[in-house]
């Protein structure tokens, strides 16, 4: 009987838990957050709700005039714009190596490269904090063999963000590497053979066959990496507490501090809304930039944001 008809009843039962949870604990909080961003809810209001005020857009005005916000935005963009592409390129390079037909022990290499992805971010951030130590850290010690004098990685405002980017690349490249490997495998070998017959060398084959063939993969990897990198939090929280001189205070860390350290809930909610808007704009920009001839193609591969906070 239900062969062509609707199965509304069953569907409701199957969907209720998942959709109910998402509505109540994911979408509703976003709406509440927008409302809170129009209030000056804070410590005083927690003790005595009578002291809370509706302040309209005053929080936005305040945040947009606050140097700390702009600094946090700059830091976050630094991480996204420099760290993101470096991560993706590293993944691509390693994926090309890994896909080379001459490589032995592929499986072992793949497992090794992927291992950092599954490690706990907090734990490896602590590990790297010691590796970066200017006196006793392994990294400066190795660099000293190349005549490079010790770099105060986490103490120098100019080096702290590069240090965090380096950690992020190490931690994340394995994830996108796998997606690139799958993307490479999906390119028909005949295309390469045809190109070879046309006399194309390795570089031309890469430019004319590999790159176009990977375009949907690039779109997917680029988007998920960017969205994930906008959420930078645990690395600076553990390694630098946002310092030195606020050089690693990201938007999410700034939001966390205003919200959960100082309980300036109105201001923190404003930051959350702004972060959402910025992420949306950046996504649209990237979609526009990478728009392929085949628009709206569903990426061939899918995975969550590679940073792995909450599945």
């Amino acid at each position: 009987m239900s062969r062509l008809g609707y199965q509304n009843g069953s569907a409701a039962v199957f969907l209720a838990p998942a959709l109910g949870l998402l509505l109540l604990f994911f979408f509703l909080p976003v709406v509440i957050g927008v409302f809170l961003s129009l209030t000056d809810f804070d410590v005083y209001a927690i003790g005595n709700p009578g002291t809370a005020r509706m302040v309209g857009l005053a929080n936005y005005q305040y945040v947009l005039g606050d140097a700390t916000f702009w600094k946090a935005l700059r830091n976050t963009l630094y991480f996204v714009v420099v760290g993101g592409p470096l991560s993706v390129l590293t993944s691509l390079g390693v994926a090309l190596l890994l896909s080379h037909r001459a490589l032995r022990l592929q499986g072992i290499f793949r497992t090794i490269y992927f291992a950092p992805v599954v490690t706990t971010l907090v734990a490896v951030a602590i590990v790297w904090r010691y590796l970066y130590h200017p006196r006793y850290g392994l990294i400066d010690h190795v660099l000293s063999h190349f005549g490079i004098s010790p770099i105060d990685w986490l103490g120098d405002p100019n080096w702290a963000m590069p240090a965090i980017i380096l950690l992020a690349i190490w931690k994340n490249f394995g994830y996108n590497m796998l997606i690139f490997v799958a993307g490479l495998q999906s390119i028909p070998t005949e295309l390469y053979e045809a190109a070879s017959i046309d006399g194309a060398g390795a570089w031309r084959r890469f430019v004319h066959v590999t790159v176009p063939g990977l375009r949907p993969t690039f779109l997917f990897v680029g988007l998920t990496t960017m969205i994930g990198y906008f959420q930078l939090f645990a690395e600076p929280y553990v390694m630098t507490q946002g310092g030195p001189l606020g050089a690693t205070r990201s938007l999410v860390l700034h939001m966390y501090e205003q919200g959960f350290r100082w309980w300036r809930i109105g201001e923190a909610s404003t930051l959350a809304v702004l972060l959402l808007l910025i992420t949306l704009v950046a996504t649209l920009v990237q979609l526009g930039m990478q728009r392929t001839r085949k628009t709206n193609e569903i990426p061939r591969t899918a995975g969550p944001a590679p940073r792995g906070d909450a599945a």
Partner: peptide
């Protein structure tokens, strides 16, 4: 099969853009 299935699914997928931290305080 139920009405609005693909629309609901599509809007869920679009929500993948929303960072989870946004709603944490609320």
């Amino acid at each position: 099969r139920f009405p609005g299935r693909d629309k609901i699914f599509g809007s869920l997928v679009a929500a993948l853009v929303v960072p989870a931290q946004i709603g944490m305080l609320p």
